[in-house]
């Protein structure tokens, strides 16, 4: 029987076959590798499907046309960046359309310029930033830490998402506080939980955890913690030690 190191994988078998559960198109970032059919990741797999290996990918970049007002926003943004003497392809790494939502992946050095443009250009006018959310993609080597911003335009009644990535080895992203002052606390929170350093933030200190806390708790390599509990004579392990499926 196969095990986690992939022994027993049938090389003849097309692992990318679309009839496998939850398979998505190529091109997106690999978020993890699923082994076996049922997702149990501890205990022996006696099902016969243990050799199944497939990569789970996030939705990949979209191609034009994006549909609806997405093209208009993308055109306006590219045009406005060109007017400032920037090459849009350098600033916008990729554009993703998924679940009726538009996401621009921005190179981090261009983030402030892009955000300023999105806020000030009359055709774009994303006045309201709903803050930043960090995500830690452990398997996305070289781009582990993502900062995700949702921008709302009340003028045009639209919502877009900006995503910036930084490697774990160099966790720096420029601060957007100068463009959206509301991001002050949000960036402190993301720094506190993910260790993302927002360059240019007026006072980047911890906001939720105590000032002398070690580590950044919402990173994926930070354990949840907890102690086993005895209930009716049985030991119930801590939540992150329990049998789990993925």
């Amino acid at each position: 029987m196969s095990d986690a190191n992939g022994n027993g994988v049938n090389p003849e078998k097309d692992l990318g076959a679309s009839n496998l559960p939850g398979q998505r198109g190529e091109g997106g970032e690999e978020i993890r590798v699923q082994r076996g059919m049922f997702g149990a990741n501890n205990g022996g797999d006696t099902t016969g499907y243990g050799g199944l290996v497939r990569s789970v990918r996030l939705p990949g970049p979209a191609t034009r046309p994006y549909g609806g007002w997405f093209d208009e926003v993308a055109d306006e943004l590219e045009g406005a960046l060109e007017e400032q003497g920037l090459v849009p392809d350098n600033a916008i790494e990729k554009t993703i359309v998924d679940r009726d939502e538009l996401t621009f992946h921005i190179e981090r050095e261009y983030l402030v310029r892009v955000a300023q443009t999105l806020r000030d250009d009359p055709a774009l006018r994303f006045e309201l930033c709903t803050g930043v959310s960090g995500v830690h993609y452990l398997s996305d080597k070289g781009r582990e830490l993502h900062a995700v911003y949702h921008l709302r335009s009340i003028t045009h009644n639209r919502l877009i998402r900006l995503e910036v990535s930084a490697p774990d080895a160099d966790p720096h992203v420029p601060s957007l506080v100068s463009v959206y002052p509301t991001n002050d606390w949000h960036e402190r929170e993301t720094y506190d939980f993910f260790g993302l350093i927002f360059d240019g933030h007026p006072a980047l200190t911890r906001i939720m955890m105590p000032d002398d806390w070690q580590g950044h708790p919402q990173r994926k390599d930070y354990p949840l913690g907890g102690i086993p509990i005895e209930y009716k004579g049985a030991q119930i392990p801590a939540p992150d030690q329990r049998r789990s499926y993925s």
Partner: peptide
């Protein structure tokens, strides 16, 4: 954010 699994990969509340 979902990683295709049975548990959330990340949920952030604004």
């Amino acid at each position: 954010v979902s990683d295709g699994g049975t548990r959330p990969y990340r949920v952030h509340f604004r």
